[in-house]
Design a protein around this nucleic acid. Structure first.
Lengths: 257, 257
DNA sequence: TTACATTGTGTCATATAGACGCAATGTAAT
DNA sequence: ATTACATTGCGTCTATATGACACAATGTAA
């Protein structure tokens, strides 16, 4: 690990590099084996799992900071990323935890060190293609892995709460914008898209009504190919009509008032 | 003005009291004369109008900070308030503007003063009853007034952008949660409620279809009284069924998926 | 060749949304 | 008093959307 990214370097010099008191945390969703996955870090010297997060350089846009974190943990650029909530309770970090954590790493802190001040964090969620991600741990963690969303246990600080809020937001967003372009491979079948929706929503949908509805949005192109190799009738492949997809992203999907 | 709230006191001692680099700004909506209003501050020594905002005490929850700002500017407690977006571009504040502003007030700053560092701000929107608000300017402003939403001109920093984003959010929220309890007096007529929706959405709605839809939510109670005194047929008065209203707030209004 | 889970497509009843008709009513003008 | 009239209350009609379900076609495996 290069010194610039080492834990010690960041702890001791971060105060000069980063905005004080503000961080970003990313809930990175992927989809694989009909399961919704989330990318988590295993902290050093701890049983806790944490969301990938980071600090904001003094002249960096917060969206850019989140994008950078994403790039560093997944190797991916140009990803769907959206801020969804700020978590700003004064007690969300436990000072003792940080101090003990750093002591185990052989780092002792001045009591005014920037890292043990109160932080608020801006939560972002990202949708990425599971298949092309190369998870990379950061300076504070030993591993970076995909987890099944429904088997995530206790987490670091308030990260579980952040994760749940991201999921709630994603579910609501499903009514306003098309989802799937970032989570599925380029070509996919209708059952695969349906599984994605069912997984995000946590409930079963009627196969025929789902198809009718999703096609009515006019964002899919039906291809002439079918997915051979499955044990049953070969389903047609679809891809997103990117032009219409983007238009739907901007204008929103359905009406209401 | 008490010294504790004076401009000079806050500028010179704020660094000890407040979180660095983070502020809150509130878009406070009211409804009067069939117009959507927003509460703005006229800055001292400037033609600019600004959103009511403030800083976060070192041990204060950010939601509480926004609640406090609201209380200070409107006199109201227990108000509908919701964070909607973080504005964190590095260039959103212009240092020169602040320094000139303070110079005119006779305050000269150390170049490391907390107030001229980069800030990100958490945007909140609030819905309040126009009739019971007593606007109060803060330490940085000379007046605090309601403005018609559609005649707001240029604003301080990125406040216009914040305002527009709040409006956009409110419009989207209209599909998920009931609105009106906070913005209307206790008893109101169907045309008044419709005007509120039309004003927020910026478009006309059909009178009969509106009534059918809003009643279908089951959050209104029809009273036996009518609103006398208008120049036409007296419309019935309604009030919110608070129990069902709150339930609808929690569970959301309509389905989607 | 057959069994079978799965897919493609369609139907039917019901619910919802948008456009509009008409009589009732309260005030103001005559 | 009577009338005019804008507005309100309550309804209809139609098009579209939604939910539940039927049935034939198809690709693999037994």
């Amino acid at each position: 690990m290069r010194k610039e990214n080492s834990l010690q370097h960041i702890i001791l010099n971060g105060g000069n590099l980063f905005m004080p008191s503000v961080s970003v945390d990313c809930v990175i969703f992927g989809f694989h084996d009909n399961e919704l996955k989330v990318l988590l870090l295993k902290m050093k010297n701890s049983a806790s799992w944490a969301l990938p997060g980071g600090f904001i350089y003094k002249t960096e846009d917060i969206e850019d900071a989140a994008t950078r974190v994403l790039k560093e943990r997944t190797g991916l650029s140009d990803i769907f990323l959206k801020q969804f909530h700020v978590f700003g309770q004064p007690g969300r970090a436990e000072k003792k935890f940080h101090i003990n954590f750093l002591k185990k790493e052989g780092i002792s802190l001045d009591k005014n060190n920037w890292i043990i001040q109160r932080f608020i964090t801006v939560g972002f969620y990202a949708l990425v293609d599971f298949a092309v991600v190369t998870p990379q741990p950061d300076f504070s963690s030993v591993t970076c892995e995909w987890h099944d969303l429904d088997s995530v246990g206790d987490m670091f600080m308030d990260h579980k709460q952040i994760l749940l809020k991201a999921l709630e937001t994603l579910r609501l967003q499903l009514n306003h914008e098309p989802i799937g372009y970032q989570l599925l491979p380029e070509k996919f079948t209708m059952p695969e898209l349906q599984k994605l929706y069912e997984t995000i929503l946590g409930k079963k949908l009627d196969r025929r009504n789902f198809q009718r509805r999703i096609l009515s949005f006019g964002i899919l192109k039906k291809l002439k190919e079918t997915r051979k190799g499955g044990a049953h009738k070969a389903p047609f492949l679809y891809c997103f009509d990117l032009k219409k997809y983007r238009k739907a992203l901007e204008e929103g999907l359905q009406g209401g008032w």
